[in-house]
């Protein structure tokens, strides 16, 4: 009994991925990010995000797994604008995960907060519980004007109406890299081998993706940067995205 309890406790402890192979983490350097939105389109292309149309956009029903938020500070002429890319934080203590009555969203052993489209019944509770507002509901079954559907990525499903969706850290790319590593008889994926679409496209290399369990990985180094912080840290969701705050040198 005591061992079972210990096991359970260990399982519940944040960072329990230690016993597994990876703890996928992303760092976003706000000092590099220019808000150019390349990542937004990269994600749209990679993950078959629908084109919702003007009317749906007007109702705030856009589906953008990654978006750029902007915050102004000051008044003209001493005014500053800051960008911050916002995407699923893959929280270790994810509020959305307790919300789902059917386990359509859960934490996998690699530290990913996954969304199982097939299992989702559309209670939308996860979206209410998510403090980062990065969960997107399919209000309709969206369609592509022919022949735009030929672009759809065959590695990613197209979601139907009534299903919640969100950033997956490009799990299809993670899978592919893991398979490739296995084919090469490597135990682990090499650092930098996996780049989610947003990370790949980022012109300023503001985003870094990798395994936090590997202390030498680039992302681990970024995570140790003194500029690092988590958005809404006080909510104790322990996100897997480390932001590096922008440097302000007021001259």
């Amino acid at each position: 009994m005591s061992t079972a309890l210990e096991k359970f406790k260990k399982y519940r402890k944040p960072g329990y991925y230690d016993k597994f192979d990876y703890h996928w983490t992303m760092s976003i350097d706000l000092d590099r990010c220019t808000g150019c939105e390349a990542c937004v389109v990269a994600c749209q292309a990679e993950n078959n995000l629908p084109i919702v149309g003007e009317q749906q956009f007007a109702m705030r029903r856009e589906i953008k797994w990654i978006r750029i938020e902007r915050y102004w500070e000051g008044e003209y002429p001493d005014i500053k604008l800051q960008f911050i890319p916002m995407l699923c934080q893959h929280c270790d203590q994810a509020p959305c995960e307790i919300a789902c009555p059917v386990f359509a969203t859960y934490h996998n052993q690699d530290g990913l907060n996954t969304q199982v489209y097939n299992r989702c019944i559309g209670t939308r509770t996860c979206a209410v519980y998510c403090p980062y507002e990065v969960r997107f509901f399919n209000w309709f079954t969206y369609e592509w004007d022919e022949p735009l559907e030929q672009q759809l990525n065959p590695d990613v499903t197209v979601r139907e109406k009534g299903v919640m969706e969100k950033c997956t850290f490009c799990i299809q790319r993670i899978r592919q890299a893991k398979d490739a590593a296995k084919d090469d008889s490597r135990r682990r994926v090499r650092d930098g081998e996996i780049k989610p679409a947003c990370v790949q496209s980022c012109p300023t290399e503001a985003m870094v993706f990798g395994d936090l369990n590997d202390p030498d990985s680039q992302v681990s180094k970024m995570a140790r940067n003194p500029r690092g912080y988590h958005v809404l840290e006080e909510l104790n969701t322990t996100p897997s995205i480390v932001y590096l705050k922008r440097v302000h040198t007021d001259g």
Binding site: R60, E133, F137, W139, F140, T141, K161
Partner: peptide, 15 residues
């Protein structure tokens, strides 16, 4: 038939 989108809910107010 069409989807829950016929209601007025949106991204931040999914309920």
């Amino acid at each position: 038939e069409v989807g829950v989108g016929v209601a007025g809910m949106n991204r931040s107010a999914v309920w």
